[in-house]
Amino acid sequence: MTTIDPARTELQPSEPPPQRRSTGTRATRLVGIGCITAMGWLVAFGLGFSPADRDQKESVRILYVHVPTIWLAYLAFVVTAVSSGLYLLTKKQSLGWDRVAGASAEIGVAFVAVTLAVGSLWGRLTWGVFWQWDARLTTTALLFVTYIGYLAVRRLGGSHQQRAKRSAVLGMIAVIEIPLVHFSVKMWRSLHQEATVANLDGDTKMDGIMLFSLFVGVIAFTFLYVWLMLHRTRAMAMEDMLEDRGLDDALIARRAEAANQQNGAH
C-alpha cells in the first residue's frame, strides 16, 4: 500500500498527486497486532488471573488502566515538549517535529481524560467520592485543561509554519508552567496515596501478579500510543498536503479563469 512522506509539505501543481489511500504500513500493522495482543493479555490478567485486593477489593482492577494511561500521558507531554524544542531550536524548523508534538499532545489529552474518568470511578469506590481536591488530582485536571488550550491554539489558523511556531512556543511554556502548577498544588494539599510502584526508595509494595498485570497494562498502552502516533502524524501530514493542494488548485483555477477572460476580451 502506498504511503506518504511526512517531511513533504508542498506539492508542485504540475506534479501528479501521489496515491494515498491509508496511513497504514507494514510497521503500523505489526504494532497494531502487538497492541491487540497486549490488550487481550491485559483483559485476561486484569479481569481474570489477578486477584482482588484485600483493602480495595475488585476496584483495584481499575488501576491496571488508570496507572498506565497517566504514565503514557506524561510521556506524551514530554514528547510534545521535546519535539517543540527541536522544532524551534533546529535550523531547518521541520514541520515533522510540529506534527509529532501535536499528535503526541492529542493522544496525551485523550489518555489524561481516560485517567480522570477511571480515576474518579476508583475514587467513588475507594474514597466514597468521585473527586477530591488532592494535589495530584488537581494537577492532573490543570494539566488536562492546559493541553486542551494547546490543542485550541494549534487550530487558530494561519500557515503551517505559523501554527508550528506558535504551538512550539506554547509547548515550551508548558515546561515552565506545569512544574509551577504541580509544586503550588502540592503545597496546597495532598491526599492521594503515595506512588506504590514508581517511588524513589525502590521498594515496590505490590503483589507479584498484580504488578505483572500493571506491567502488561503499560505494554498494551505503549503499543496503543505508538500505533496512534504513527497514524496521527501521517494523517496530519496528509491534512497539510491537502490544504497546500487546495491552495495550489485554487491558484491554478484563478489563473485559468483570468487567462480565459483575457482571451475573451481579445
Partner: peptide, 16 residues
C-alpha cells in the same frame, strides 16, 4: 481562548 490558556496558568498565583 484567553481564559482557557490563562486560568490554568495562573492557578499558582490564585493559590499562593
Amino acid at each position: 481562548l484567553l481564559p482557557l490558556l490563562t486560568l490554568p496558568a495562573v492557578a499558582p498565583v490564585l493559590i499562593g
